Simulated assay, not measured.
Amino acid sequence: MKRINASELDSLDLGKVLLLDIRSRKEFESDSIRGSVNVPFDEISSGLSKLPKDKPVYVLCRTGDLSEEVAEILEDRGYDVYNIDGGHAAYIVSLVSSKL
C-alpha cells in the first residue's frame, strides 16, 4: 500500500486527486481540510460506489489506522490509493510545526 506523510498534504493538487476524509460528520464539519470529501467510516460500504476511479484517492482519518483499512479495501477494488500516515492529528501537528 502506498503511503504519504500528513505533512505532504498541502502539496497535493486537489483538482487532480480525491482527499477522502472518513472521520465522523461532526469531526469533519468542525475541522476539515479544504477540498476534502467526507464519507464517514460507518458509511463507507455504501459510499465507495460514489468515489471516482479516474484519480488517486488519499484516505484520511483521525490517526491513520481506519484509513489504512479503507485504503486496503479501495486498493483491492482497483483504486490508486494512498494512506495518510498519522491522519488528521499528524496533519494538525505539521501545521503547527511549520508555523514555529
Rank of each mutant, 00 (worst) to 15 (best):
S7G: 09
G78P: 08
A71T: 13
V70K: 03
A89Q: 14
H88V: 02
E69V: 13
E27S: 13
L12R: 01
S49M: 12
S45Q: 12
I33C: 04
G15C: 05
L20I: 01
A6F: 07
D10P: 00
F28H: 13
S36L: 03
I4G: 00
K53F: 02
R34L: 12
S11T: 14
L19W: 05
D10H: 09
A89P: 00
S46T: 14
I92M: 13
L9I: 15
F28E: 08
K99I: 10
S97A: 15
S7W: 06
D42W: 08
A71N: 04
E29V: 11
S24V: 08
K99R: 13
D65K: 14
F28W: 14
A90V: 01
S67L: 03
L66E: 06
M1C: 01
D65A: 13
G87T: 03
D21H: 07
P40C: 09
N5W: 07
K55Q: 10
G35L: 07
I92G: 04
S98C: 04
L74Y: 01
G78Y: 05
S7D: 14
S36I: 01
D54V: 06
I4A: 01
S97T: 11
Y79D: 06
I92L: 15
L20M: 03
E75P: 00
I73A: 10
L51G: 09
L18D: 02
N83D: 10
L48Q: 12
N38G: 09
S36V: 00
E68C: 04
P56H: 05
R25Y: 10
R25A: 12
L95K: 15
Y79G: 05
V37G: 03
S30M: 15
V59C: 01
A6D: 04
K50C: 06
V96N: 06
S67Q: 09
A90L: 07
N5E: 15
G64H: 05
Y82P: 03
L100D: 12
L95A: 03
I84T: 09
S45G: 10
L18Q: 05
H88K: 11
D10G: 14
G15E: 15
